[in-house]
Amino acid sequence: MTDRSSLVDLRSDTVTQPTPAMREAMMAAPLGDDVFGTDPSVNALQEKIAALLGFEAALFVPTGTQSNLCAILSHCGRGDEYIVGQQAHCYRWEGGGAAVFGSVQPQPLDHAPDGTLPLAQIEGAIKPDDAHFARTRLLALENTLGGKLLPFEYVQAATDLAKRKGLQRHLDGARLFNAATAQAALNKRSDIRAEARRIAQCFDSVSVCFSKGLGAPIGSALVGSREFIARAHRIRKMAGGGMRQAGLLAAAASHALDHHVDRLADDHASAQRLAQGLEGIGGLAVEAPHTNIVFADLTGAAQARSSELIASLNQQGILATGLYRLRFVTHLDVDGAGVDRAVAAIRGFFNA
């Protein structure tokens, strides 16, 4: 078995291990029973993330998938519809949960190259009030989308359009703080939390994941109005998301909010280092990253060698995925030396 400490795991930022300080915070957390609403660590986390993003209330849930499900089913009823992107996680990668469990119909739209949904397409997809159609109730956006930052001006325009048309607005902000980090850098601002709040305030509800770039082992939060979160709480119960002494996990998420937000810029720098290191390789086209995710495509005769490349990297203790494109994700467990190892291994494969 390969020693984990020798691995460079670039499959996802969900693979991180809790830091020693995070483990200490987990072990010291006061606990109660969150199903009864009496776990003080869960309650403290919910108050913290709601206040940070400018909402009345929050709900701690096991996964981002469940958070998005609770959001969509709280905004929409049976026979309703939500507008969403073809590559959005809550449409493509979450098992069709809204349709399966809530009879809520997705209306997927094609993304523009920058990840946005064109405003004219959003407006054109809104159904008239007619018995022939599902009722369009919600616009769901994702930021970042595949590691891409949605331009803030676009987010404002799209959510303003939705509001004018009477739609609710949900953000899958699984990597909201990565988006805020990139937005802060773009605008030469230093307060990442303020940028996260600016993005979040364009929406009626926001889902935030703690187990991706923030490095907690488990958990997401859904934020919104008190009335909205009360509906989501009921759906969480039906979905089996009520946990008992969940304060152990909430403490990890709270520690991540306090200590791991400002270091996300390091992950973005590592992604840039990786992308720059792969430039100029014949047979490999690399997309410049906005945040901590680097996508690459094999070209020409190399297109048939994706699985061969992944296997070669795995043999060298470098883990990556190639489900639909080559994807490399940097995080707090990958340092500069690890990035350089990955670059050398990939270059070695193409030079062999």
Rank of each mutant, 00 (worst) to 15 (best):
N178Q: 13
V261H: 08
A230P: 02
G173C: 03
A185P: 01
K165V: 06
I229P: 05
L274P: 01
A157H: 12
A174E: 07
V208S: 01
Q276I: 09
A180E: 01
V206C: 01
D258G: 03
H268V: 14
I235G: 09
S220W: 00
A252W: 00
A158P: 05
P217D: 04
A271W: 02
A232K: 13
R169N: 12
G247F: 08
S254V: 02
R193S: 10
A162G: 12
E227N: 15
L176N: 02
A216Y: 03
L249C: 10
E279N: 14
Q245H: 15
A221R: 05
L214V: 00
S220G: 09
Y154R: 15
G247H: 04
G242P: 03
L257G: 06
A185K: 08
A158E: 14
A251F: 08
L274D: 05
T159K: 14
G166H: 12
V223G: 01
I229T: 10
G224H: 14
E227I: 13
R226D: 14
R273V: 11
D258W: 03
R234P: 00
L176F: 06
S225M: 12
K163C: 09
A256M: 06
D172T: 11
L222K: 02
R193Q: 05
P217R: 15
R231H: 15
E153H: 09
R197G: 06
A232V: 10
C202D: 09
M238E: 11
E279R: 15
M238V: 05
V223Y: 12
Q201G: 08
M238N: 09
